[in-house]
């Protein structure tokens, strides 16, 4: 767990590197999937790149804002090259916000763009799952299955690899379905539905101390609601 690499004196841990790799592949893929819906791949790829930087900036500003009392005494520390001073949730919100803003400016804020962004989003989710494995904070329940991995002193369900395998299947389904005459938004909503179900199932094999809501894992509740809303949306898209 938690290996990291040093490049020119800059320490980069494997988890952020996995996120970066996922983001780079997602941006590359967006340039190609845009054509599926007749969109300009360069514009979509650029929007995603800017959103990536927006996410990074948002994550750092979010972290600094949450710890303002210490950073106000040393504002230049906010510029430090460290992946430890990032707030992931605020970064994700900032990234989505910047992406929506860029797409709106380009006149592409519509369901067709969401369809084109679904495969890159699945690839990014793979990067995040790999990062989660490197990070070691999320781990599976103790298991006696042949494919169990040794994590924190026990053989456990490799939950991140379950997730990555599921994501690959969803991605393959998206590639197969891209040539079908689906209504705009169907591919994106289908991906949300499938990913929601995947997380719902996979998170049931986790054993880490997750955030709870009414005694249930918050991630599973969000996954169930997202999947249900996506199914509802698919019904609406089917009859537009």
């Amino acid at each position: 767990m938690q290996p990291f690499i040093q490049i020119f004196g800059l320490a980069i841990s494997a988890a952020p590197a996995a996120v970066w790799l996922g983001a780079v592949v997602a941006i590359w893929l967006a340039g190609r999937t845009a054509a599926w819906r007749g969109l300009d791949g360069r514009v979509l790829g650029d929007a995603l790149t800017v959103a990536g930087f927006g996410a990074l900036l948002g994550a750092r500003l979010g972290y600094v804002a949450l710890h303002a009392s210490v950073y106000v005494r040393d504002p230049l520390a906010a510029l430090a090259l460290s992946t430890s001073a990032l707030d992931g949730a605020i970064g994700a919100l900032a990234g989505v916000g910047v992406l929506a803003w860029r797409l709106r400016r380009a006149g592409m804020l519509r369901w067709a763009a969401a369809d084109a962004l679904a495969p890159p989003a699945l690839v990014l989710a793979m990067g995040l799952a790999l990062a989660s494995y490197f990070d070691g904070a999320v781990f599976g329940a103790v298991a006696e299955v042949p494919w169990a991995v040794a994590v924190w002193g026990a053989a456990r369900h490799p939950v991140q690899f379950y997730e990555m395998a599921g994501l690959l299947i969803i991605l393959a389904a998206a590639v197969v379905l891209r040539k079908r005459a689906l209504p705009d938004g169907a591919l994106a909503l289908g991906a949300v539905l499938a990913y929601g179900l995947l997380r719902l199932i996979v998170d049931g094999f986790r054993a880490d101390e997750a955030a709870l809501l009414a005694g249930l894992r918050a991630s599973q509740i969000v996954a169930a609601i997202s999947a249900a809303l996506a199914a509802w949306g698919l019904g609406a898209a089917d009859h537009r």
Binding site: L200, G204, A207, A224, A227
Partner: peptide, 14 residues
């Protein structure tokens, strides 16, 4: 999906 999902979440709750 919602009912089944919440049921699964309950069955696999920590």
């Amino acid at each position: 999906i919602l009912a089944g999902g919440l049921g699964w979440a309950y069955a696999t709750r920590p």
